[in-house]
Nucleic acid binder design. Structure first.
Length: 684
DNA sequence: TTAGGGTTAG
């Protein structure tokens, strides 16, 4: 056996670090103690401090450091760098200050760590003090130190200081330029990033994959689709298409620019993919409302043995939320636990959001309370979940709790959207208006288009349809589809054909291809007995080539999905379904249900209309659920179009008769029926 | 012993 010299022991420490095995690291340390007497040679002690700190074993690192009487700036920097790498930023700054207390001067390796810790903690006051030290001994001129100081100022929002540093840097390298571009994008200045790229090329810079990613981010941020496409060509010419990071950046860019087809093209042509590639592709589908495709890509990634990361899990959960796919959502939640990422705040918030949107508010609450840490997004998800379910009281209580006491969070734009939508769904008109009018003064958030839409919905849903229209006319920003859509919905609810026509005309202009608006207007006219107008709308639809999508409802039973269309008799258990429908119809009639034939789409005889609405797909899916799902288990149905008013009222009756909880997720929102009531206060 | 990026939640 060769003798263990200090140099060979140092090599052993290095190899233990490279395997990331703390067990091996401790074994090597034991061997060193066995071989050499204390105190260890200083350089070997430094190796150990570095290893322990990087392996995220801070106590051991600190102990080895304190046993080294001749510890130097290198020893301390090894300790601090490990803390920064493992996200222990506050510890890093504490260690930095302990080092100064021992009168050891930081060097060009120490300063970047201290700047990064200050930047990550968003503590510009500390960053400034570190900067002063770096200026004092001239270290700021070093390209590493200068770049990290610039990054710190940018990330802590001190633009002027960042700009001065950048302009006065004696030397800039590619990292400096990349930092400049990335921070410009983060700061909402994508144009500056693009200009910096041009300047960088002009001074003879050679971009790398990080430069491309930063540029693509700028393009997707500002929706510079053409500029991004040109960069795609540039990436190909420079031979960077084989680079996984550059291609990942392209997938992300196209996805954010609503060109998911190009994302798929880049993805399909890649020879090598990593976990980020898969996650970017799933994200691109989710961002383009292609949740089914997102789930397919996720399952494909699983088949290929790609390990699920916290990023992937939170993205897939948002796909489940979009699909109201509770079963898949549950299995992804289980996967998060298995992958040990459920404690991650992104994953936890996505779990809360998924359960809230899938109607399992108790699961959402449980996930919320079990989270080791929560942030604003977690609270928003919970408030949004209550709003979805029509629990305005809980939404408002959580809002109150979030902003007060130990939580002390500052609400953002989305928080206010969730709160106002909760008021609207609960008919809390005064409360909603009060919050809307004071949100600028109290929370510093100026109302945006989503907030205006909530108020239109709030007024309209409460029967103040004319007031809602007056409100729209006075809006300082142009009304959007959501706003006219809310008005049209309330016109349908309260039978206001004239205003409905105005809302619909605006919708036709903004969104000519949406068949739903034509159908609602036609129904509105039909309900008011204005058959000619109703027929005219239908004719117009035909003339301009709009087809109403085929309505269907689906229900998941024992992991199989059963899809039904209106008047569907094709299911293998059709006779049982029909028998259940017959039984229900009889019992409902006895309970006082009267079919609402406004929702029969044609000018039919009354008897035919009744039959028309009776065989809507959601009722058939529900009948199937009642014969297959054991008593006590909630029945969940999803519909691709909006649930019709007759089905809504029928399911209310059914929930009372059969004593079960029934939820219907339609393409607009969530309806939870229990004891003859629905979570939404009213429906047209 | 050191600096920059890519995928995530409303």
């Amino acid at each position: 056996m060769t003798s263990l010299t200090p140099n060979s022991l140092a090599a052993l420490v290095e190899s233990a670090l490279s395997t990331r095995s703390s067990l091996l690291g401790r074994a090597v340390h034991a061997q060193i103690i066995k071989t050499l007497n204390n105190p260890l040679p200083s350089f070997l002690s430094n190796y150990l401090v570095n290893m322990y700190s990087k392996l995220d074993l801070p106590s051991s690192a600190q102990l080895v450091l304190s046993l080294n009487p001749s510890r130097s700036v290198v020893t301390w920097t090894a300790l601090i760098a490990g803390s920064v790498q493992n996200g222990r930023f506050a510890s890093a700054l504490l260690q930095f200050s302990n080092m100064l207390r021992e009168c050891i001067q930081p060097n060009d390796f120490t300063f970047p760590c201290a700047f990064k810790a200050s930047a990550s903690l968003r503590m510009p006051a500390i960053g400034k003090q570190v900067h002063a030290l770096a200026v004092k001994d001239g270290q700021i001129r070093d390209v590493f130190v200068g770049c990290s100081a610039f990054d710190m100022y940018s990330k802590t929002g001190l633009r002027d200081e960042a700009r001065i540093l950048f302009d006065e840097m004696p030397e800039k390298n590619i990292v400096t330029w990349n930092a400049y571009m990335s921070n410009a994008v983060l700061d909402g200045q994508p144009r500056n990033a693009v200009n910096a790229f041009i300047e960088f090329l002009r001074v003879g810079g050679e971009p790398d994959s990080i430069t491309f990613c930063a540029f693509l981010n700028a393009c997707s941020d500002a929706l510079y689709l053409e500029t991004g496409r040109q960069l795609h060509g540039f990436i190909i010419r420079r031979g960077f298409l084989a680079d996984v990071s550059a291609s990942n950046g392209l997938i992300d860019f196209y996805g954010k620019c609503r060109d998911v087809g190009s994302s798929e093209m880049v993805f399909d042509r890649m020879c090598q993919r990593n976990d980020v590639t898969w996650c970017s592709m799933v994200t691109a589908h989710v961002q383009n409302y292609e949740e089914e495709k997102a789930c397919m890509v996720f399952l494909q990634a699983r088949e290929e043995g790609v390990e699920p990361t916290d990023y992937m899990i939170s993205t897939v959960l948002s796909a489940c939320a979009g699909l109201s796919g509770l079963e898949l959502g549950r299995s992804v939640h289980a996967l998060a636990v298995k992958a040990c990422v459920e404690g991650n705040v992104f994953v936890g918030s996505a779990i809360v959001d998924m359960y809230g949107k899938c109607g399992s508010i108790h699961d959402a609450e449980q996930a919320f309370y079990e989270m080791p840490q929560r942030n604003l997004i977690t609270w928003n998800a919970m408030i949004g979940g209550y709003a979805h379910q029509g629990h305005a009281d809980m939404a408002l209580a959580f809002f109150q709790d979030m902003t007060s006491g130990s939580n002390d969070l500052v609400p953002n734009y989305v928080t206010l959207v969730c709160v106002l939508s909760a008021c609207s769904r609960a008919g809390a008109v005064e409360m909603g208006l009060e919050i809307f009018e004071s949100m600028g003064a109290i929370f510093g958030i100026e109302p945006g288009v989503e907030h205006y839409a909530c108020i239109v919905d709030l007024l309209g849903r409460s029967g103040m349809v004319e007031r809602a229209y007056e409100f729209i006319k006075k809006m300082p920003i142009p009304p959007t589809i959501a706003i006219w859509g809310a008005l049209l919905g309330s016109c349908r609810m309260y039978g206001k054909p004239e205003l409905g026509k105005i809302a619909a005309d605006n919708l036709f202009e903004l969104d000519p291809k949406d068949s739903g608006n034509h159908v609602v207007l036609s129904n509105l006219f039909a309900a008011a007995g204005m058959w000619e107008e109703a027929t005219l709308v239908r004719k117009e639809m035909k003339n301009v080539g709009i087809k109403k999508g085929v309505g269907c409802s689906w229900i998941s039973v024992k992991n199989a999905v059963h899809v039904f269309q209106a008047k569907d008799t094709s299911h293998e258990r059709n006779s049982e379904i029909q028998a259940m429908l017959y039984k229900l119809r009889k019992e409902m009639k006895e309970a006082g249900y009267v079919p609402d034939t406004d929702f029969a789409l044609y000018d039919l005889e009354e008897e035919e209309k009744i039959s028309e609405v009776w065989y809507h797909s959601e009722k058939i899916a529900l009948a199937y659920g009642l014969i297959t799902i054991p008593p006590g288990v909630p029945i969940r149905i999803t519909k691709n179009l909006r649930i019709c008013g007759d089905c809504h009222s029928a399911i209310k009756f059914i929930s009372g008769i059969v004593g079960r909880e029934i939820t219907v997720r339609d393409n607009n929102r969530f309806h939870r029926f229990r004891d003859g009531q629905c979570s939404c206060r009213d429906y047209w």
